[in-house]
């Protein structure tokens, strides 16, 4: 059996039983996405990397508390979310800079869909900036809902709330993003 065939839930159970080497596989599977989430929240690459390391060490220490009632990813992002919020609270005097206006094409990844390709660089920069100006609880729901989860149940588990609450929060977060974007752009988003 290769490691690819082993589920995250099985791996974390082995970690809980004392095989910490399985944590390496979980790290390789998930660290990029956890990092991207932490980076969005902290806006500081060095801080985001520190938080990611902390997250996976917490996973090692808390492995025994994982219950198979939900997905490992939701549990992992719940740890990541709490660690990031702790970091932001402790480091509130030195928030990372907002994304710069000179949004570079080179930063954009090559998997954009047709809609995003049509959107101008400047407008994408404004969108990135608008997202960064939102409070943490709105940024996290948008990021996790857009990039990490396809059900409100998992999203709610990651955010420590019920699926219905996650749904309402997402609705509000998108309203606020729309307002923030319109304020910064001088006009609503028009793809």
């Amino acid at each position: 059996m290769t490691m690819h065939a082993v589920s995250d839930e099985q791996l974390i159970e082995w970690v809980a039983n004392g095989d910490s080497s399985c944590l390496g596989t979980l790290f390789e599977r998930h660290h990029r996405r956890v990092y991207q989430f932490c980076l969005q929240m902290t806006r500081n690459p060095a801080s985001a990397e520190d938080v990611v390391q902390e997250v996976f060490i917490k996973v090692l220490r808390k492995a025994g508390s994982f219950r198979n009632t939900g997905s490992f990813r939701a549990w992992l992002f719940n740890i990541a979310r709490n660690a990031t919020l702790d970091h932001i609270r402790k480091d509130k005097s030195q928030p990372g800079p907002l994304p710069q206006d000179d949004y570079s094409e080179s930063l954009m990844v090559d998997h954009r869909t047709a809609e995003q390709s049509a959107a101008g660089q400047e407008r994408m920069g404004t969108l990135q900036k608008a997202l960064a100006t939102l409070p943490a609880h709105f940024q996290e729901v948008i990021w996790l809902g857009r990039f990490e989860f396809d059900s409100f149940r998992d999203l709610g588990q990651a955010l420590d709330c019920k699926a219905g609450t996650a749904r309402v929060r997402m609705h509000r977060a998108m309203q606020q993003l729309n307002l923030a974007f319109t304020e910064l752009n001088g006009a609503p988003f028009d793809a």
Binding site: H31, R32, Y35, Q36, L39, P45, A48, E49, V52, L107, M108, V109, R112, T113, E115, Q116, S117, A119, R123, M124, L127, Q128, L131, I142, G145, R146, F147, E148, F149, D150, S151, F152, L155, R167, M170, H171, M174, Q175, L177, N178, F181, T182, P188, F189, D190, A191
Partner: peptide, 27 residues
Amino acid sequence: PSLPFESGDANEQKLWAALAGLPRTEP
């Protein structure tokens, strides 16, 4: 993965689609 977008607001729908194009920096 991504949640289905549920709002009927056209601007919010465009924003939701555009979010997919945000940079995903590698560590």
